[in-house]
C-alpha cells in the first residue's frame, strides 16, 4: 500500500502546531510554537492575543514541518485541521490557512475534532490500542469520559458540568500564587506536601454516573485557604495543593475505573494535558491493575496540544473518505462531533 502522509494543523487554543504523520503512526515532524510565556503575564489564555500569535507563526511552522519531514508540499496526501472545539478566533486562523493550503495544493481537506484528536494521540505508535477501550480526556478545555468501540466510533459517557480539570488546576494555582500553567505548578507543590492533612470534598463521587464537577472543589480550596489565613493559622500551601490534587485525581480515577469495569474493556486510554500529571498516572495505573486492565498514556509531548494527534485522527478520516468542503467553518463548541452513530 502507498504511504499516506497527512499534514496536521492545530490552533484551537494557545499552541500553534504543525505536524506530518505517515500512515497514522509514524511522526515525521511535530512542531509546536507555545505561547505560554505570552499568556503568563495575564494569568491565563487571552483569546485575541492567542489569535495574533497564530497568524504570526503558522506559515513558518508549516514550512518548518515539511523541511523536518524532508518533503515537498506536493508529497502531502491531505491537510487535516482542528475546526472544533476551541477559541473561535484562534480556530479560524488554522481553518482559514488549512483550507487555502489544501486548495492551493489540490489535496483533500479534513476537519478534525480536537477531542477526538487527543484520543488519537494514543495511536501514534507501532502497537495501537485494542478496542473497545475507555478514554479519559483531561485538559484545560476538557474533562470527558468516552467509550471507544472502534475507530471513530465513540459513546460519550460523561463530561464536566463546569470547569475542566486543567482549568481547576490553573485557577487554584493562580489563587495560591503557585504560577502558570497550573498543572505542573500544583504538581510540583504537591510533591513536597501531604494529602489528607487538610480535607477537601470529592465532588460527585457519591453519584453513580460519569459526570464531573470541579468548580465546587476549586471554591472549597479557596474558602479553606481564606479561613486558615483568617484564623491566623500557619497554612501549608504544599499540603493544600497535595489535597486538591488528590481530591481531583480520586474522582477522575474512580469514575474511569468504574466505566472500564462495567464496559469490560482491556485498555484505558488517557489523553489531554492533565494526563501528564504524575499522580494521576500513578493512581490510575494502580487501580486499573486491580481490575486487570492496562492503561495507555501518550508521552507528555503528545498529551498537551499538538498537531501529530490531529494528523493521526485525520488519517482515519482519510481512510473513510470523510473530507471537508471549501465552506468548512470553525465552531467554539460543537457538543462533541465525535459522538456519531457507529456502523
Amino acid at each position: 500500500m502507498k504511504e499516506v502522509r497527512i499534514l496536521g494543523i492545530e490552533t484551537s487554543c494557545d499552541e500553534t502546531a504543525v505536524a506530518v504523520v505517515e500512515n497514522g503512526h509514524r511522526v515525521l515532524a511535530n512542531l509546536v510554537s507555545s505561547q505560554i510565556d505570552v499568556h503568563r503575564r495575564f494569568g491565563g489564555v487571552v483569546p485575541e492575543v492567542a489569535s495574533r500569535k497564530h497568524i504570526e507563526v503558522i506559515a513558518s511552522l508549516v514550512d518548518g514541518a515539511l523541511k523536518e519531514a524532508g518533503m515537498a508540499a506536493q508529497e502531502i496526501d491531505a491537510v487535516a485541521v482542528t475546526y472544533t472545539p476551541g477559541l473561535i478566533g484562534a480556530l479560524l486562523v488554522g481553518v482559514s490557512f488549512a483550507k487555502a493550503y489544501a486548495y492551493g495544493l489540490g489535496k483533500p481537506l479534513i476537519g478534525v475534532d480536537h477531542l477526538e484528536a487527543h484520543i488519537y494521540a494514543n495511536f501514534l505508535t507501532e502497537e495501537p490500542p485494542i478496542f473497545p477501550a475507555v478514554c479519559l480526556v483531561v485538559s484545560g478545555g476538557h474533562t470527558s469520559l468516552l467509550y471507544m468501540r472502534d475507530h471513530r466510533c465513540f459513546e460519550m459517557l460523561g463530561q464536566t458540568r463546569d470547569d475542566a480539570a486543567g482549568e481547576a488546576f490553573d485557577k487554584v494555582a493562580r489563587f495560591l500564587g503557585l504560577g502558570y500553567p497550573g498543572g505542573p505548578a500544583v504538581q510540583k507543590a504537591a510533591q513536597s506536601g501531604t494529602a489528607g492533612i487538610y480535607r477537601l470534598p470529592r465532588v460527585y463521587l457519591e453519584r453513580d454516573d460519569y459526570e464531573f464537577s470541579f468548580s465546587g472543589l476549586k471554591t472549597a480550596t479557596i474558602n479553606l485557604w481564606n479561613k486558615l489565613k483568617k484564623n491566623g493559622e500557619e497554612a501549608a500551601v504544599n499540603d493544600l495543593a497535595a489535597e486538591f490534587q488528590e481530591a481531583l485525581v480520586d474522582v477522575l480515577v474512580e469514575k474511569t475505573i468504574n466505566a472500564a469495569r462495567r464496559k469490560e474493556v482491556e485498555q484505558i486510554l488517557l489523553a489531554g494535558g492533565v494526563a501528564a500529571n504524575a499522580r494521576l498516572r500513578e493512581r490510575i495505573t494502580q487501580e486499573a491493575d486491580k481490575i486487570g486492565a492496562a492503561v495507555r498514556i501518550p508521552p507528555p509531548a503528545l498529551c498537551t496540544d499538538n498537531a501529530a494527534m490531529v494528523a493521526c485522527a485525520g488519517y482515519y478520516q482519510y481512510l473513510e473518505g470523510d473530507f471537508a468542503g471549501l465552506d468548512l467553518n470553525a465552531f467554539p463548541q460543537l457538543g462533541l462531533a465525535v459522538q456519531k452513530t457507529c456502523g
Binding site: D63, K99, A100, Y101, A102, G104
Partner: peptide, 14 residues
C-alpha cells in the same frame, strides 16, 4: 486574520 491566513495558505501552497 481570515483573509491573511487564506492568502498565506495559497501563496505557500502554490
Amino acid at each position: 486574520r481570515i483573509g491573511l491566513a487564506a492568502a498565506k495558505g495559497l501563496a505557500l501552497a502554490a
